[in-house]
């Protein structure tokens, strides 16, 4: 071992970046694990620094920005009913106290969006595609999962990392606070709102949707049925195009959700309700 390498390993060990128990003279330590540790610590500290009030404020502004492009469906009975179903599902989550708001928006896309803080938008195309309330519960539960796990805030954090890296920008040198975070998130507008999350986040949201639907008394097998129907549609054109830019393929999701369903304790496939969906103007695209 030459002198420089030896010094480096000693310093990394002193900083706690070497795996515990690694002999000082080995050079085959898991550098990937070191990176992950550093990045995860950084990410958790930054995202955690946004408190719930600020998260709600950010989400409200982002949703307002998005509604400019996805206008609300003007049908009060539909919107109220959607909120009753959505709140019932959100009550089963780990964040029942958030100010949950649900709205149907005009779009033929089969999609749904979640903003930080608890605002969730569902397209008319999606409402036209679900065949019963249990399937809608899976969709809403998925979006609630993104909010509960603060996935979009994590995306913002990644974006900030890239911005900082690309321009050698030191956010800290500009005294960036929550206002700066909020402005940066707004700058992304609907792109952040609709941006693809990583597959891990989507899988986590799928599992959360399944879990919440089951807890709310719906048949969890409806989630698999919905995914299977999506998988039969042509994936790369028309109303599904945007969805597949931001989500794993429906076939992967069918497999993942089916496996997750068999890990449920307290609800078996086929148990639970599948009330007919009586939302008015389901085709309000």
């Amino acid at each position: 071992m030459n002198r420089r390498n030896g010094r480096m390993i000693v310093l990394l060990a002193a900083l706690g970046l070497l795996p515990s128990g690694a002999p000082a003279q080995t050079r085959n330590f898991d550098l990937g694990a070191v990176f992950d540790t550093v990045k995860n610590v950084a990410r958790s500290q930054s995202v955690a620094s946004i408190d719930q009030d600020e998260e709600i404020r950010i989400g409200r502004d982002v949703a307002a920005s998005t509604l400019s492009d996805y206008p609300l469906i003007q049908n009060e009975p539909l919107q109220r009913r959607l909120n009753q179903i959505g709140v019932w599902i959100a009550l089963q989550s780990s964040r029942p106290g958030l100010p949950w708001h649900f709205a149907a928006v005009k779009s033929g896309q089969i999609n749904a969006f979640a903003a930080p803080g608890g605002t969730i938008l569902v397209t008319g195309g999606m409402l036209g595609h679900v065949t019963n309330e249990a399937e809608l519960a899976c969709v809403l539960g998925h979006e609630i999962g993104h909010v509960v796990h603060r996935h979009h805030l994590a995306v913002l954090q990644k974006s900030l990392l890239v911005a900082a890296g690309a321009s050698a920008l030191s956010v800290s040198s500009k005294s960036a606070g929550s206002e700066d975070l909020r402005k940066r998130l707004l700058a992304e507008g609907k792109e952040v709102f609709t941006r693809g999350l990583d597959r891990g986040a989507e899988r986590e949201a799928d599992e959360e949707g399944l879990l919440l639907a089951a807890r709310a008394g719906y048949d969890p097998a409806a989630c698999v049925d919905f995914m299977q129907r999506l998988a039969r549609l042509k994936p790369d054109v028309g109303p599904l195009e945007a969805l597949y830019k931001t989500h794993p393929s429906a076939r992967e999701r069918v497999t993942d959700v089916t496996q997750a369903m068999h890990r449920l304790q307290g609800a078996t496939p086929g148990s639970g309700a599948r009330p007919p969906l009586t939302l008015e103007a389901q085709g309000g695209k």
Binding site: L264, G266, P275
Partner: peptide, 19 residues
């Protein structure tokens, strides 16, 4: 309102977790 809707639709909350 959400709880009344659930009752009308025959929905009963249940403790469900992942194994």
């Amino acid at each position: 309102e959400a709880e009344r809707m659930a009752a009308r639709h025959g929905l009963v909350a249940r403790p469900v977790v992942f194994a």
